[in-house]
């Protein structure tokens, strides 16, 4: 095994090869987070169910009872939970990834491994809660005797989209937080705003047509619409909006890795 250490940015190819080399670590870091998360709590993993359930309850109270959002023939609970399913994964991953490097200082200043593994592992841990919410969603589908149409076959595609987008934003945030600790305070705020700027509790059809171009600059809008389309058969946004989202996700992902790499080499010096 030969290692070459040079000034400047490491080559992308050798970086990716290293990440594959350290794939066990990627899984183990995710496992550690998952194990530690509800350690010594009385309710343990029930928390992973309680959180979405309570949020759902509040959404029903606010959007269905108070605002009286119209979701047509689809039961509101089912409608909202589908949105929350994608959104809570995204919110979890970007919050966790954002502070991930800074909070593993002890590791990062003492030993080498591809640092990108740290934020990426958050994308994997998030999948556990994602599965738990899916369970809840399946229960609701059975409860309402709602049978998804053929569109449901495209669901994996939307899941890949939300994972990619979350990791892209997570990578950006984790690298930015190393330099600007301010992000630690900004991210929770962004998550809060994003919840209302995305069609989680209301249908995107309520957004006036002239604002849609701006609205769909947020890829989560297109992704959540996609989740609903595949599960509940609600209409998809215009193709050009989906195209925008796809391009934005890819650009963010690639630039995120690029920026992360630039910062990575200085982590031990500036953290």
């Amino acid at each position: 095994m030969k290692t070459i250490i040079e000034a400047g940015r490491p080559r992308l190819a050798s970086q990716l090869r290293e990440i594959i080399q350290y794939r066990d670590l990627l899984v183990l870091l995710a496992y550690r987070d998952y194990r530690v998360r509800y350690a010594q709590t009385v309710l343990g993993f029930t928390w992973a169910l309680i959180q979405p359930l309570l949020t759902l309850l509040i959404f029903i109270l606010v959007f269905q009872k108070a605002v009286k959002v119209d979701t047509g023939t689809i039961p509101y609970a089912l409608f909202a939970l589908t949105g929350m399913w994608a959104w809570s994964y995204f919110a979890y991953v970007i919050t966790q990834a954002g502070q991930s490097i800074v909070s593993s200082q002890a590791l990062v200043t003492k030993i080498y491994f591809p640092r990108l593994i740290i934020p990426l592992s958050k994308g994997i841990v998030g999948l556990i809660d994602f599965m738990i919410v899916l369970l809840l969603l399946l229960l609701l589908l059975v409860w309402y005797r709602f049978v998804p149409g053929i569109n449901v076959l495209t669901l994996p595609l939307w899941i890949i989209a939300v994972v990619l987008f979350s990791m892209a934003v997570g990578t950006w945030f984790s690298a930015l937080t190393i330099r600007f600790r301010d992000l630690q305070y900004v991210i929770p705020f962004l998550v809060q705003i994003g919840l209302y700027l995305s069609p989680v509790g209301y249908p995107s059809s309520q957004i006036p047509a002239q604002y849609r171009t701006i609205y769909y600059l947020n890829p989560m809008a297109g992704i959540i619409d996609g989740f609903r389309w595949s599960l509940l058969g609600t209409p998809l946004p215009e193709t050009k909006f989906l195209l925008y989202s796809g391009i934005i996700i890819l650009l963010l992902f690639i630039s995120g890795i690029y920026y992360f790499q630039r910062t990575e080499r200085q982590i031990a010096d500036i953290i």
Binding site: K2, T3, I4, I5, E6, A7, V108, T109, K110, I111, Y112, R265, Q266, A268, D269
Partner: peptide
């Protein structure tokens, strides 16, 4: 853990 500013190391 940290990167050099100049130079090269082969291990």
């Amino acid at each position: 853990i940290t990167a050099p500013t100049k130079g090269r190391v082969e291990i």
